[in-house]
Design a protein around this nucleic acid. Sequence first.
DNA 1: GTCTATAGTGAGATAGAC
DNA 2: GTCTATCTCACTATAGAC
Lengths: 210, 210
Amino acid sequence: MALRLFAERGYEATGIRSIAAGVGITPAGLYHYAASKEEILLALMERGLERLISAARRALEDLESPEERLAALAYLHVLSHGRRRLLHLVNDTEFRVLGGENRARIGARRDEYEAYWREVIRRGVVEGVFRVDDVRLAGFALLQMCTGVAQWYSPEGGLSIEEISARFADMALALVRAERDGGPVRFAELGLAGLARYAEEGAPWECGVG
Amino acid sequence: MALRLFAERGYEATGIRSIAAGVGITPAGLYHYAASKEEILLALMERGLERLISAARRALEDLESPEERLAALAYLHVLSHGRRRLLHLVNDTEFRVLGGENRARIGARRDEYEAYWREVIRRGVVEGVFRVDDVRLAGFALLQMCTGVAQWYSPEGGLSIEEISARFADMALALVRAERDGGPVRFAELGLAGLARYAEEGAPWECGVG
DNA sequence: GTCTATAGTGAGATAGAC
DNA sequence: GTCTATCTCACTATAGAC
């Protein structure tokens, strides 16, 4: 419930009264589950990052080549941003409300995740399969374009989230000018149809106070 | 002042007391310049969109080919997001607080701007110089990756904003797999060194109440 | 054009009963 | 584990003097 309200109205514009009403208890009852409003947000943000990090880690364990690895990172990132749209929207929007220790903790997790991307890009460049001028810039560009999916995706649209993920993975390969044997690397030719298995589903997040 | 506070803390977390204190007057004095807090935000968002739209329009008047046009859109978008970072950050973050008529007005301006991008991509595809699976998806990806610059750019970094803009324009061309005469189109070879002239500077935005 | 003063509302959080 | 009741504080906005 807090997730939906934070995503729709924003953290600051959401009162604990609304959250409590949404789950059918009184504001005071909320403080049995969380010590503060910020702690509710913190728990949501940790969930979102955990999803991204664990899926990425599992995929990177199985895949070797930079092009497969980058495609997997992009695919799984987009897939998660579509399937858990609100969760990632809050993650990408409300970081600034975190203060002190909470901010440091989430910031560190985010850096950990982004380091996966940069390392994959860097390896692709040194192996000669990617051609980018600046690894850091390419990392920002790729992460942002995939993250933005949470801002416009709707399950109602024509393409399934799996199709969208595949096309974003292909665009990611294009952005880094991935080439093997003198020709461009296309996502469809990598044989990564089963990528979605790395994004295991746990319990649904939208129920309960969070 | 309002711009800095909105960008740093967010619109909802910023009180009119802070804005007033920042410009050295009392909260009541603010209402001489704006009828409401939301109107201050509205004015800022209109400024940001006006910058993007007018620069894009001027560049598209002068340039013909899809690859030049797309490169110009990306370059100018990134340039503005770097030079007026806070202005665009607020634009990209606080849209949801607008209600009713204000939301419709800003939404329409945003659609107008994004239509430029989609039309350029579409033309590139029908002319056979771009190769993308889905114009709409490519438009989202390109806009998001360029917009994201406002989230991480700092003038302190190594590269100038003009260099960063050039590299993003090049990545944009890569993303759509731009090709001429059997070879990839590179930004450096387009001879668009003077693009920055389309981004004229008006009065500085950060002073005054806004 | 800016002030003082204040109305009116809602916020996050706590105490302590049950 | 959830309640009622209430604390304290900050908010946007207005009225009307100067």
